[in-house]
Nucleic acid binder design. Sequence first.
DNA 1: TTAGGGTTAG
Length: 564
Amino acid sequence: MKERSHKNHKNNKVDRAASLLKTCTSLSQLKQIHAHMIRTCLHQNNSLACTIVSLYTSLSLPHYIYRVFSSVSRPSLSLFNHTIKAFSKVPSLCIHSVHLYLQMIQNQFKPDNFTYPFLFNSCATLSALDLGVEIHGRVIKTGFLSYIPVSNALIDMYGKCNMLNHSYCTFNEMPKRDVVSYNALLGAHAKLGEDMGGAERVFNQMPERNVISWNAMIVGYINAGDLDSARRVFDEMPERNVVSWTTMLVGYTKNSLVKSARILFDAMPERNLVSWTAMITGYAQNGQPSEALALFCRMERARMKPDAVTMTGVISASAQLGGIELANWVGSYVDQTGIERNERVLTALVDMHAKCGNMKEACRIFEEIPRPDVFSYSALITGLASHGHGIKALGVFRRMQMHNIEPDYITFIGVLTACSHTGLVEDGLKFWESMVNDYRIEPGADHYACIVDMLGRAGQLDEAYELVKRMPMGSHPGALGSLLAACRTYGNVEIAESVAKQLFKLEPDNTGNYVLLASIYASNEQWDEATRVRTLMKEIGVNKPRGCSWVEVNNKGLGFQAKG
DNA sequence: TTAGGGTTAG
């Protein structure tokens, strides 16, 4: 009797906690309830722990997941499954769901139809195809393939790992399919934008379609580079949701059709964080930083809170404008609003401060990045190089090599710039060789421009000119411009005339080239020639533009006000 | 169990 009443009392407490958790909507509430549960030992209850794990994920505090799991002394199969699911939803924690799966098997638990879908999700996120195939084998042995969600997750995983054939094999072997099976297969086509004819066949054979099916077709056509078909599907679909609109919008921004994107953005019946972010980054990526910032201001007025992705775009836009005040404002905005300081946000910040000339801040933030990648290193190297810290830039490059981070096309632009601005001709030529032979990077016009600039600054004008003539991509304004500038420094009229002739053809409206040639003639006291160039300028109608500061640009249309 | 947004370029 006594024992029964004790059991009832305990069940009541569990029920009360469960219903409290059901109404929980904020992180502070959840923490309060959780703390109370720990005090009263309720945290050992598996069913309550499952709810807590899910809540910490949905309320964006995934780092508590493991703490909750490991505090339960005898976790149930269900708690393992909930925790694996929770980890699979957070890309940076996916690997833990695999660890937990292994731990589960070690502890003699048998994974079931609730375990595998999320495990396959994690494999997809981690692009861990081998592991996925291995688990697939185990699923076949244990007979869980007949559960539709398990096979659906497999189709999706193979698709995300670019194994369209494997997706089809799984799909074809299913005795029963649902709309998700078809959508996952369409998603596999869409990811690569490959064989859209095949995707159309699937789409036409579907017993039923939902908005996800239509959206998958839009993504597929966009990835196949067929914007017209994407738009046709968008116009034809019976019902659109915010994802349909945003997907189409991104299709335009990715193809530099920012105006079309904006028309769509303005016409959207509703917008969410992703829509705002897509439009802002669309502007930033297409060289319209002022528009990006103006939209960011509008977003704030609409009380839409930016996240790390939004801020990456905003920071990149601010970097392009290059104003130190704006950079400082954006920097403190990120600090004060608690935006997640992930690798991409920090890299964008490094780039922004570097472009605005604040190398000290750029270096400080770089040191905050736990594992810098090729993007972060390149941002710092190009920043240092273009601000006259060539030796430092090369030091960072060596550090990058020591950490076995493979440099890319852009890294070498930074490295060669460092050499050219520091007068390290021999080193520059060695890096050039290493780029081609060790890293198999095809030199682009930008790299040639750096080397031409380097030789030109060192006075090796003939060598520079020979290199310009040998450029496989033909004459390039950047390389020619550097050479013309070097001709002025060293007073070489002969090469200057030939180079300027090519430049006038390539960039008829670029005033700088005319001014440079005129000044080369003038310093060589060839006054008549100098006058001839100035007359030519007037005839063509190019005028020396008046300088325009960022403040003026800002006052014209941005309406951007620094706060705090 | 299925769909949309991100960082480096003389």
